[in-house]
Nucleic acid binder design. Structure first.
Length: 255
DNA sequence: ATGGCAAGCTAAGCTTGA
């Protein structure tokens, strides 16, 4: 099963740059999206349905903001919209699809870059999300949680760890959260298979950052430890450019 | 320490993003 996660930074803008044409060539079984920046009625879903996908979305209340989705060729046994916590669900940040062998969550974790209120919100989210996942694991022990975590875990995951030591996304408390999250029983699939530096999934639009590969690795496929034997590959598709992020892909031997 | 670029709202400038 080929699974791709992609923060598209506005699905309509991404489509203007050829998103569905790329998807047609790439043919993932499951396509997890973040930052749709659109309600369902603003998106031309037919171009994706014509590629054979069942489409499930969780949009934010605020127009043009946030929103996540799962496009899936195999119809899930069940789909859960949101995480059941209203302060997060009104921002459209979590959607889950359950299959026979496993479940997939597409998530867009909050940014803290706009200042203290949102950084505090992000830290509350992180703790609440971790508790939520620990409970969820009791009923759904085989989990893939993919998406935009808005955190670089280690110095190898960011082009300038010294200059960014006080930047939201690379704060010590955020990095520690991710260590704790992994210690709860998850594996960072890309880093598990690839120890190379300079492997990023997001670049600023400013200062030609992408051309110079001055990026951050903030998009992840995290799987529960019991799925690691099923992991066949994990890749960052750095040449795909419909967004300031690029897609991240894994292959899992599950159904 | 600051600014730089883009998407989308809404109708010229604002908010958010990391």
């Amino acid at each position: 099963m080929k699974i791709i996660s992609y923060n598209v930074n506005g699905i309509r803008a991404a489509e203007r740059k050829g998103l569905s044409q790329w998807l047609k060539n790439e043919q993932p079984d499951i396509f997890c999206l973040q930052e749709l920046k659109a309600n369902e009625d603003q998106i031309d879903l037919s171009v994706f349905q014509d590629l054979g996908y069942h489409i499930y979305l969780h949009s934010a209340e605020k127009k043009g903001y946030s929103g996540v989705g799962i496009f899936t060729k195999l119809k899930p046994n069940n789909v859960e919209i949101g995480c059941g916590m209203a302060q997060y669900d009104r921002e459209g940040r979590v959607i889950r699809a359950d299959y026979n062998d496993f479940s997939v969550i597409s998530t867009y974790m909050p940014s803290g870059s706009s200042g203290d209120p949102r950084q505090n919100f992000k830290m509350e989210w992180l703790e609440d999300f971790r508790s939520y996942v620990q409970e969820l694991k009791k009923d759904f022990p085989n989990l893939l949680i993919c998406g935009d975590y808005n955190i670089c875990h280690q110095p190898i995951d960011i082009h300038d760890p010294v200059r960014n030591k006080n930047s939201s996304g690379f704060l010590p408390e955020e990095r520690e959260w991710m260590t704790n999250f992994l210690n709860d029983g998850f594996i960072d699939t890309f880093r598990h298979l690839n120890k190379e530096p300079d492997q990023y999934s997001w670049w600023s639009y400013r200062s030609a950052a992408r051309e110079r590969n001055k990026g951050w690795r903030i998009d992840y496929h995290m799987v529960t430890e019991n799925l690691i034997d099923k992991l066949q590959s994990a890749d960052i598709l750095q040449d795909v450019k419909h967004s300031d992020h690029c897609p991240v892909k894994i292959e899992l031997d599950v159904t």
